[in-house]
Structures are given as structure tokens and as C-alpha cells.
Design a protein around this nucleic acid. Sequence first.
DNA 1: GTGGTCTAGACCACC
DNA 2: GTGGTCTAGACCACG
Lengths: 143, 143, 143, 143
Amino acid sequence: MWIPIQLNEQSAEPLYYQIEVQLRALIVSGQLAEGTLLPSIRELAKTLKCSVITVRRVYQDLENEGLLRTRQGTGTFVAKVGDEERRRHRTEAVVETLESAVDTGLQVGCGEAELRKLFDEVLSRKLADRPERPPLGGDGGNA
Amino acid sequence: MWIPIQLNEQSAEPLYYQIEVQLRALIVSGQLAEGTLLPSIRELAKTLKCSVITVRRVYQDLENEGLLRTRQGTGTFVAKVGDEERRRHRTEAVVETLESAVDTGLQVGCGEAELRKLFDEVLSRKLADRPERPPLGGDGGNA
Amino acid sequence: MWIPIQLNEQSAEPLYYQIEVQLRALIVSGQLAEGTLLPSIRELAKTLKCSVITVRRVYQDLENEGLLRTRQGTGTFVAKVGDEERRRHRTEAVVETLESAVDTGLQVGCGEAELRKLFDEVLSRKLADRPERPPLGGDGGNA
Amino acid sequence: MWIPIQLNEQSAEPLYYQIEVQLRALIVSGQLAEGTLLPSIRELAKTLKCSVITVRRVYQDLENEGLLRTRQGTGTFVAKVGDEERRRHRTEAVVETLESAVDTGLQVGCGEAELRKLFDEVLSRKLADRPERPPLGGDGGNA
DNA sequence: GTGGTCTAGACCACC
DNA sequence: GTGGTCTAGACCACG
């Protein structure tokens, strides 16, 4: 099964964090359905050209968050995520970042109108750039 | 002279970064006028209850950005900031964070409408919470 | 023949261990009488929805402990368990776990009284929850 | 500062887990007071003769549980633990183990009286063996 | 000095 | 084959 994760080696963000963010997004957005068997840590590590330990950490962190479940000798699966939890996860990161942006804007003296304008510009640009991404087949490898 | 900087020890963001962001905002927003003498490194460190090394780094970074100027034996001043530069600085951080938020939102499957709604909520809340802050006296320091 | 074994997939305990503990308990408590023919490895694996390898390991381990005997081409039987051995086995696991619990309690600063209270609570609760379980018919298998 | 942690290399329990259990106990029992600066991961690793990574994992896990707080460049501190949380943590592990012991006992056919007798024996023995341990000085190294 | 990330690689337990 | 633990050691960021 193929998982669309893009790493940016130039970024200051740690590798494990980049992977976590993207994998978490795939799960809470439902693109990776409950019960889906993820690639083994070794396999994903090879795919991403990083250490198995880095991938392991990702899986472990997401398991601690309750998004994954792993069974030794079997593999790592997408856990059941309640609707409530899914909604919370979905907007949590977005809202946090928006708050930070608005905070910064207000502090440097932007008014409400200017902030709205900047947001509109960013949103329009991002929507235009948006790559078409068909939903992942979520039934592959689900034992 | 008093500089309104709030540190959050709980945050994962490094101390120096929190200080930099806020000090930069005060400068590019004009709340700290050109030529203003900043508190000495030692004084600000004492005020913020952090290491002098941390403050030193902040002043150094902002000097490298051209926002501060240091004169040996005299102190550190707010440099002249061109209108062009000021405008760029002002929106730069905001736009970056907004982009990051929108990216995250799109990746977890939020639609345009939902993102706009979240932004509106955040903006309204922040505007309501906004503390009244009179402009700082920019006419020199008492260090 | 039906063997009452409950597996908890959520548990961190390995499957083979959960099965071993419960099967051992059935034997040393006399609920599975000497000479009883156990279900075949394949059958039990199917019943428990786990790998034959897992069941094989369980039978092997219990055979090494002297609780089971395997006769090629015939099947696996409950071995003769001496009274001495039965008594030892019966309390061994219980005592070990009790010791571990008491150790933990003392280390976190519980006093004797508090430990007794906790034990009473747990015991009462478990006795109340206890499902009625009639003794198993120990007179041979239908495999 | 000295932390009384005993490792059992023979045990099947992973090192990191043994350390976690004991450190957690010291914290929730109040023997390590809020704000106490723990030994650095390198120092504790040397003391315990294990890898820094093992200690790091312990600190990280306990930080995820909210029992520790670490500040880069400064060290790792005991976090504020609410009374409610402390009580929960304190009895949680004990109760779990007691339940497991009682479960086992009932399954092998012990009656209530026998279980009480076993518990009494274990408790008495452990109380007698108990080493005298004076409270730790919790004010060492607290910057 | 501190913690944080990433690496390679060994060995074990489980299915 | 899978994941789990532990190791040694490099390099960076922070105070």
C-alpha cells in the first residue's frame, strides 16, 4: 500500500514531525480507513529513505494518541477514531495555527480588514495550487 | 523603559524565539520608534528572568536583520526601518502562519467554507479578547 | 469439547501468554481432569481465531511444565498432576502477582491499612461480578 | 541529587519500564517534590549503567503523562501534579495488579478465604522486609 | 553544560 | 516476516 508523504529535508522541522503531521492528517481525514494495515516500519523507512527508528517513533507517538494500534508480529493498524475525536483532531491544529497568525497580526498592528484580506489572498492562492488527490484505496492490506 | 513582553515557559518554543517575535513586532509596528534606546542586555534579562545569553542572541539576531543597531559602550537602538521593509516584515510572519494553517486545513479535508468559518471564529474571539494597549512612549530610554 | 478461554486483543499481553495462563488455570484447578483430550491445535486455533503457531506454542510450553502430554497421532491430553504440584501451581501465580501489587503499593507510600482496603474492594467487586461457571465435563473429547 | 532506583537485569521487564515504574512512584508519592530538578539524562544513564537513550525514553514517557517537564538546555523537572491526579496515579497500578491476582486466584479455584489468607501472608512478609527509607531531600538542584 | 534528533545495527519476542 | 528493546555515537539547538 502506498502512502503519500512528502518530506522536506531543508525544513527545520524534524523528520519525525513532518511524517507525524501528514500521517495524522490522512487518518483523521478518513483517507486511511479504520483497520487499514500500514506499511511495516522497515518498509516505510525504506520508502522515505530514513531510519527505521524515525518511523517507529512516528507510529509510537500516533499510537499514544490513540490513532494507531500495533500488534507485535502482525503490524500496525489504523485504530477506530470516534466522530467526536476525529472532529476535534481535524480542527485542532488548524485553529491553533490560525490563532497564532491572528495574534501575530494584531501585535504588528494589522487591523481586522487587513487580516481578512491577507487570509483571503492566502486561501485563494492555496485553493488554486491545490493538487488533485483522489482518495486512497483504504482496503488494501486489511487482513 | 518598559517593554511589554510575555514569556510562556510552558511553550515548546524556545525562549529566544518568543522574545524575538515580540520585539520584532514592536519595532516593525512602530510601537518602538526609530532611535529608541533599548534596555541593556543585563537589564532585560533580569526583567524577563532569563539568561543574558538568551537576550544577547535576540539583540544579535535582530541586528543581523537590520532592525537594531548597537553602539559600543552606549547601548542598543532601534534602527531606521524603511517603509518598504516595514511593510514586508509586518505581513511576512502573518502570511507564513496563515499559509501553514490553510495547508493543514486542506490536508485534513476542510473545505473552503469550513476554513473561512474557523478563521472568522478565531478572529472574532481574538478581537474581543484584545487588551487595550496604548502606544509606547518612543522618546528614549532611561537605562 | 468447549474450552472457556477469553482473549483480549487490546491487552499488551501476548496472545500465547493469555492462553497459557487460562489453560493452566483450568488444569491445576481440576476443571480439566487428568486424561482429558484437548482440542487439536488446528481446532483450538480456529476457535480462538489465532495462529496455529500460537496454540502450538501453548501446548508445548504446558507440556514442558508437565501439565500436558502429547501422543503422536492421537492428540494432547491433560497429564497427571500430583497434589503437591497442583497446590504449588495453584497459588504460585496468585502469590507472585500479590507480591508485585504490595510492592508497588508500599513504594508509592500506601500504608498497610490502605492496601487492605484496596484489596477488600477489589475482592468484593470480583466476587460480585463472578460469573457462575459449572465444572466442565472432563470425560473425553469430541475432536 | 541521588535517586534510589534498583534495576533487575535478570527480569523480563524492559529496563526503561523498571525505571519508569520506580520514578513514577517517587513522584506520585511526593518523595520527589514538584519543581525538583532531576539528574540529567546523561548522568542518570551513567548512574544506572544504561544507555542515555533508555533514560531519555523514561523522561519522555513521564513527560507525556504530565509528571515531568523538560526545558532544553536547562534540564528536566518534576511537574505540578494535582491532588486528584496524584491519588489516581497512586492507586491505579496497585489496583490493576490486585485485580489481576484476584482474577487468577478465582480462576484456579481459590475461595475468598484462601485469597485473603494468601494476601495476609504476602502483606505481612513484605511489611517485615520493608527497608527503612528516609524521605529524599527534594530541594537539591531546584534552580 | 543541558535536551532533541537521527543514524546504524544487534538481539529478542511474537505470529 | 512483524514490532520491541537496547546499544553506541554523531550532530544540532538551547541557556
